[in-house]
Write a protein that binds this DNA or RNA. Structure first.
Length: 856
DNA sequence: TACTAGCATGGTT
DNA sequence: CAACCATGCTAGT
């Protein structure tokens, strides 16, 4: 096609073969044909087309989608209600073209603009997105968009009616032209492309070309005054059937070759695309993630239609004083007006409050490419109280085509931010307080979003520091969601404390990426952390704390408690099966027990004890004990949490970390559960008990020895003035308290066929070692030669014993050459912290085959 | 000196 | 490995 203008052509023959007026003096441009050209129509047909009286039937004999009166089907009324938006199609297109981009441009003149195709096509179809970003196709513009007014959105399956419509449109075997539509399967993709084709055709110069020879502001059909009728360019897309969810198969192929599948349209549209990678897709991180809430906020009850364009998390520099917001290239090129000169264009953007801002949309040449930026955003960002890590969203508001800039606070953005948010905003954050905005809509909208924002505002100051620190880091990519981090951490730490190895089971050792993992056939389960001890009569017991009253109850040593255990479940001691029953364990005794459990916590406890205000010692102890049991992890600053990851496991891994839902989430196994996992755990628990018994005696000996030589290597082991080992001794009962490290279990040894060289917290993030909370290992940790070991030790533990894992290690390897050292250290550890044994049999014990492996 | 604009560099995808 | 992009660097004001 030679021209995009709706002017007459020389053929003089109406493209509509059904048209009686085959000849016409003046032909006008109609819909876009598959060839990329525009159908030339007689006045009558063109008018019908322009008026939106589209034919909803695909004429097999025609070479494209068309509208006409001739077949008697053309009429907007034939459109399914859901597809009829707030204005007639033709009106819409007029809005779109005439007011659309023009509205973005300051002093809008004939400026080229880009339609808003979804660059996220391939992903949009993903189920995940469907739930989040339901798209409804706007036939009028051929762009996926969210119909905020009528129905907020149309879930994937709810598009049925649209499909039906499409079917009617198709009404026959798919033609090649239509086929790609289906294959793309994404609302919008073809539309866009199709639409693009209109643009591109007319807007010949590709981006690349633009850069060299910019047709800046010229020949843009959409905004061309000549096409004030608004028909131009939109035609083709208007007639496009709604892209419907394609059959899964097709869909998949699409996902894989989104680009390929669009080849045809690519050819047609020739729309400038920066590069092959970005042709049809953008990085997911820029994909607009509007929730229905967001949309509601944006459009409210108004008839506005929101077309999410893209979003971007503000980087430190974006949010910095420079006032330059780097735009993703693809997005900039796709959704913003094409610019050929580095100076770019002033762009009018409306913020969530309806305030208009003018940014300079420009680019810098960069490595044969461009780097697009919005300049002058400082005041806007400040106005919105945005910071690095927050997300700004760009969308277009229809009618009017206003470019709207919203934002979403960083609740889900980065770890610490999230942390902050998660803690303060009660889940609101998850929705994000996206604030976009049709100012007029605000009044109509459920203000919840707004309120949420206000609430957040108060917290901004608080979170600011954190955000800054986070974003100040070199890491450009969003970290794992904070929530995830926490979950992972809890999961792993829970696992550490609760894993029970199967009795008489020799673990197999698997080396993954240089680390040795001790694997068991079956996965373990989780149980309640308890303190094992030996009573005055020498009987093995364990102390468990009631979830409700926090009192410690004495239980047989061979039982495994559910993670949530209360006095009422204390069938072993009916007298104390009520929370009202007194605690058998004295504060002193508990105090003695604690060091074994968690030296660091013990320290805290001691410190607390020294405070005069500490009136209720027992209560305090309980708290501390609880703390000890739960570990310090929970109290660690968020920064340290960032180190918790679950790095080495792989898909299919059946370890506890992998199989167990994040802490606190998902169904929990019942005590009576007989699933594989539970059985395994129970088995392991029994084994553990056996081991403990064996170790018990050994520990006692060790303790005795230590006492005799007070000032020795112990210092290394614990900076705590109080030797942990003595703990149990001072008190009467639980003398031997924790039957730590008695893991001499033969099985254990066997399993240790591969000696532990050190253990690594699977959640650890080697590169963030420095971020680990030093306190975690505090008291009990001694310096180990192995990096891995050190790291491990430094890892915060939430479970009973800091040293736990070690004890196991210790026991595991009584003697092995190279590992001797490590082992010895482990042993020391174990010795110093008898309790360490609460430890978690090393289902996951990891041993770096090489000392350096851990360091990464 | 402080600030800005633009380019260059290098980490990440 | 190329492209992208966050940010550092530097010249200019």
């Amino acid at each position: 096609m030679t021209s995009t203008s709706g002017a007459a052509s020389s053929s003089k023959i109406c493209f509509n073969s059904d048209c009686k007026d085959l000849k016409s003096e003046r032909l006008r441009k109609g819909w876009r044909l598959r060839t990329g050209e525009l159908a030339e129509l007689c006045d009558r047909c063109a008018s019908a087309f322009e008026e939106g009286r589209f034919c909803d039937t695909f004429h097999l004999n025609a070479s494209g989608w068309r509208s006409c009166e001739s077949c008697g089907k053309g009429s907007t009324s034939s459109l399914p209600p859901s597809l009829v938006f707030h204005s007639t199609l033709s009106e819409r297109s007029k809005d779109y073209s005439a007011n659309g981009l023009a509205n973005w441009l300051v002093g809008s003149g004939p400026v080229p603009w880009r339609q808003a195709p979804s660059l996220f096509n391939s992903s949009i179809s993903k189920p995940e997105l469907h739930s989040r970003v339901p798209y409804e196709v706007d036939i009028s513009t051929g762009i996926d968009r969210l119909n905020v007014s009528g129905r907020l959105y149309t879930p994937y399956l709810e598009k049925k009616n649209i499909e039906d419509f499409s079917e009617r449109l198709m009404n026959g075997p798919l033609k090649p032209g239509a086929r790609d539509i289906n294959e793309n399967g994404n609302a919008g993709i073809n539309f866009e492309e199709q639409r693009s084709s209109c643009l591109t055709k007319s807007q010949q110069p590709s981006l690349k070309e633009e850069s060299s020879n910019p047709p800046f502001g010229l020949s843009v059909p959409y905004t061309s005054p000549d096409e004030a009728n608004g028909q131009i360019g939109v035609s083709g897309t208007h007639l496009r059937p709604n892209p419907q969810p394609p059959p899964a198969k097709q869909f998949h192929s699409n996902l894989h070759n989104g680009i390929d599948s669009s080849v045809e349209t690519q050819i047609l549209n020739g729309r400038p695309r920066a590069d092959s990678r970005g042709r049809n897709q953008l990085f997911p991180r820029y994909r607009p993630r509007f929730t229905d809430q967001d949309l509601q906020q944006i459009a409210g009850d108004s008839n506005s239609i929101i077309t999410p364009l893209f979003e971007k998390m503000l980087s430190a520099s974006d949010a910095g004083r420079i006032g330059r917001l780097v735009l993703p290239k693809k997005c900039a090129e796709a959704y913003f007006p094409p610019i050929s000169l580095p100076e770019g264009l002033p762009l009018k953007v409306q913020d969530s409050k309806g305030k208009e801002w003018i940014f300079q949309f420009r680019f810098w040449p960069n490595n044969n490419s461009r780097m697009y930026v919005l300049e002058g955003v400082t005041s806007c960002i400040q106005n919105m109280q945005l910071q690095a890590g927050d997300v700004v969203t760009f969308s277009r508001l229809e009618p009017g085509g206003k470019l709207v800039m919203g934002f979403r606070k960083a609740s889900t953005a980065s770890a610490s931010e999230q942390d902050n948010k998660a803690k303060h905003s009660n889940g609101m954050s998850t929705q994000g307080d996206a604030e976009l905005a049709d100012p007029t809509s605000w009044s109509k909208v459920d203000k919840s979003g707004y309120i949420a924002k206000e609430a957040l505002g108060a917290k901004l100051a608080v979170s600011r520091k954190r955000k800054n620190s986070i974003l100040g880091s070199k890491s450009k990519r969003p970290r794992i969601d904070n929530e995830d981090l926490i979950e992972l951490k809890l999961t792993w730490e829970e696992a550490q404390g609760l894993l029970r190895g199967p009795p008489n089971y020799v673990a197999s050792v698997v080396v993954i990426e240089g680390f040795e993992f001790e694997e068991y056939e079956d996965a373990p389960i989780l149980g309640k952390p308890t303190i094992f001890a030996t009573d005055s009569s020498g009987e093995k017991i364990q102390w468990a704390q009631c979830e409700d009253c926090f009192k410690w109850r004495r239980l047989p040593s061979d039982i495994l408690l559910p993670s949530k255990w209360t006095c009422s479940s204390n069938s072993w001691d009916p007298e104390r099966s009520f929370c009202s029953a007194t605690q058998e364990l004295t504060a002193k005794q508990l105090e003695n027990l604690l060091p074994h459990c968690n030296p660091a916590a013990f320290k805290k406890m001691k410190a607390a004890k020294q405070e005069p205000e500490n009136v209720d010692a027992l209560e305090g102890l309980d708290t501390l004990a609880n703390l000890a049991i739960l570990g310090e992890g929970e109290t660690l600053p968020a920064s340290s949490q960032a180190t918790t990851k679950h790095p080495r496991h792989r898909p299919g891994c059946s370890c506890i970390v992998c199989i167990q839902p994040p802490s606190g989430k998902g169904p929990k196994h019942k005590q009576s559960c007989t699933c594989n996992v539970c059985q395994t755990v129970k088995r392991r628990f029994r084994t553990l008990m056996l081991r403990r018994e064996k170790k018990q005696s050994q520990k006692e000996l060790e303790t005795a020895c230590k006492k005799q030589r007070p000032s020795l290597p112990d210092k290394e082991l614990d900076d705590d003035p109080l030797p942990c080992t003595n703990a149990g001794n001072s008190s009467p009962n639980p003398k031997k308290v924790v039957s730590e490290g008695s893991d001499d279990d033969p099985n254990r040894v066997k399993s240790s066929t591969s000696p532990f060289k050190g253990q690594i917290d699977l959640n650890i993030q080697p590169e963030r070692e420095e971020e680990l909370s030093p306190g975690s290992d505090s008291g009990s940790m001694m310096r180990l030669p192995q990096d891995a070991t050190e790291r491990y030790l430094r890892q915060p533990r939430m479970l009973t014993s800091g040293g736990n894992s070690y004890s196991e290690v210790t026991q595991t390897q009584p003697g092995e050459g190279t590992e001797g050292e490590k082992i010895s250290s482990s042993v020391n550890l174990g010795a110093s912290h008898p309790d360490a044994d609460r430890d978690h049999p090393a289902v996951f014990s990891v041993r770096p085959s090489a000392p350096t492996s851990a360091t990464g």
